[in-house]
Design a protein around this nucleic acid. Structure first.
Lengths: 337, 337
DNA sequence: TGTTAGCACTTGGGCATGTTGAGTGCTAAG
DNA sequence: CTTAGCACTCAACATGCCCAAGTGCTAACA
């Protein structure tokens, strides 16, 4: 029995099952795909595939469906990434061209991706943990309220209002700003905690209290700039593929709402730096996603931020991978300008 | 046939149906609620209620379920808002105390509300269309890049990076900031478009170009401050109550994702300024929510921003209303500080 | 050794049929 | 206006039956 044909059979099973969402049997297989052999031969092959845990039969006299492992092999060794149709390329173009705001671009992007794939799309805000301090600003809003602004060279701006604890004047703030700027300008955000203490110590004694408060404010800003966010679209697609989640889509929705979970998931998929990464069913670290697959890739500088889709294991991987990759490329290009 | 008893029967039907999610019949009713009459009498009453369109029978020999109109009457005339349990009050307290960031507070709030009610919770960011300009700031980031910051007296801060078109110096920016500040400080955000043109005209000729760019930047900031946002939590609860949405939860998820839709929905529910507003099933302007109910109320200054929940028509209205009201009050109190 | 035809066997799904029980509407009496 | 009683309806469940799809196995074949 030829190894290549076994793969061919697996491929056929996956494709048929994805298409029909019904267990596929030996006879149907030989009819739909012109493999040059009879159904009996296919049966033998299928028995082997089942032994290897690549496919499984829901019950005695039904066809086979791919297991997680089967999908894995399919994705790794078989599927060629399917090129997008011209219409899809056009859609990407027209939808993503001509907008300026990063937030706006991301929003359009997830929507587009979710429509393209008919799955839930998710995009992580561009990374900034390696960003450096470009500028800080202290603005007196009210006698004791100070607005602290932190601008990173990634272009991200975080702001926060803090209570100075005692009255401070505009002049005080100017002094403090100078001290802080010389102390931390250009420093990576992640180093802020260590750098701030000495700066505070160097401030005029009368302003120690205010300096400490401001330092804490900056620290929190850096922190919340580090803690990343994401954006969702197409959750309604989950409902459509209700059948594909035997239990319920509840756990999936929960996972999607837990941004922490999703972000970790995405960043752990970083392994393959130049392609699209796929995480299938139980491969998934999070329990709620044990019946779901994630297709993701990086975008932007260093492909550090992630974009991807989430759907049932029974998913059209080639198309999904193509869509994710294409959209990520366009996104990189637009944001790179 | 006594009018009060008819209401009592409706009330009983609603309560039983909400509790059991099964059509409720005359016999079961007299058993569970000690109305002082027999099932035959109830049957007569039910026939009347059905004539009035308050209840309906799914098929000939089944019990009755409330119609939208029935729920409406129940909410308007019958249901007493159920006070929260001590445990729930404690939960509200402990979860909402001791956080500073508005974003953070809102996030905790929606989560809390969704857990309290087992429904999807939604909160609108505090209003700011009536907010006034408190402060503006221009920060030179790079030779031509200027960060424009707009701070409203609502505490909201919007920022944006603009390309000045030509090199500007820090001194230029200070001059411009002064002009702009005197021109628009204290002005309502919605008036910015009209106010900015004259300010630009008054600027030094050499800085006209930069001034125009900055003015446009401020304008956009005011605009995006006006366009409101919202926050969601508990979408997974929809999946749980899958049964309650005969079709699918798809349309509901779609609606939730369309922030524009949701925001309009919420603001259109403004009618009852001192209580909780309920919109039931087909009363709902948006088609996708024709099987859902919305319970919402205002919070914060003038109760201008909205908070609420969305769930199936078959919902425990008294509890939901109580929870929404209580959470809104706590939220007002915390943000008011 | 790999492929094929044939065959006995398994099993879920569809269908017709029967039964049950909750629930109704109506009528007539209290 | 209320109630008991009764005939009637109908979804839900159960039962039994058959069928088609699919399998595994064996024996023959190239």
């Amino acid at each position: 029995m030829s190894e290549p044909r076994k793969l061919e059979v697996l491929r056929a099973i996956v494709e048929d099952y994805v298409h029909s969402r019904e267990p596929v049997g030996s006879k149907a297989l030989v009819e739909r795909h012109h493999l040059g052999v009879s159904s009996a031969t296919i049966r033998n092959d299928m028995a082997l595939l089942e032994e290897e845990g690549l496919i499984a039969a829901p019950h005695t006299s039904a066809g086979r469906i791919p297991t997680d492992k089967g999908y894995r092999l399919f994705v790794d060794r078989i599927s060629a990434v399917k090129p997008l149709s011209a219409a899809e390329r056009r859609a990407i173009h027209s939808l993503l061209e001509g907008s300026d705001d990063v937030e706006d671009v991301l929003e359009r992007t997830v929507r587009l991706l979710s429509q393209l794939t008919n799955q839930v799309a998710v995009v992580q805000y561009p990374h900034s943990s390696r960003a450096k301090v470009r500028h800080i600003e202290f603005v007196l809003l009210a006698p004791r309220q100070v607005l602290v602004v932190l601008i990173a060279d990634s272009g991200k701006v975080e702001q926060r209002v803090v209570d100075a604890g005692a009255d401070v004047s505009d002049e005080d703030l100017t002094v403090l700003r100078g001290r802080f700027l010389t102390g931390i300008s250009g420093a990576p955000l992640e180093n802020l905690p260590q750098l701030l203490a000495p700066v505070v110590a160097l401030c005029p004694p009368a302003l120690q209290g205010a300096a400490a408060v401001l330092a804490r404010g900056l620290d929190k800003l850096a922190e919340s700039s580090r803690d990343e966010r994401m954006m969702l679209a197409g959750t309604a697609n989950l409902a459509r593929s209700n059948v594909d989640f035997p239990l319920s889509i509840g756990p999936v929705l929960e996972a999607l709402e837990e941004q922490v979970v999703m972000l970790r998931l995405l960043s752990e998929m970083a392994e393959d730096p130049r392609g699209v990464t796929v995480s299938i069913g139980r491969e998934n670290p999070y329990d709620g996603l044990s019946e779901a697959s994630v297709v993701a890739t990086g975008y932007g500088p260093g492909a550090a931020a992630k974009i991807g889709i989430i759907g049932p294991t029974r998913m059209d991987y080639p198309s999904s991978m193509a869509a994710v990759r294409a959209v990520a490329r366009y996104l990189s290009r637009i944001l790179g300008s």
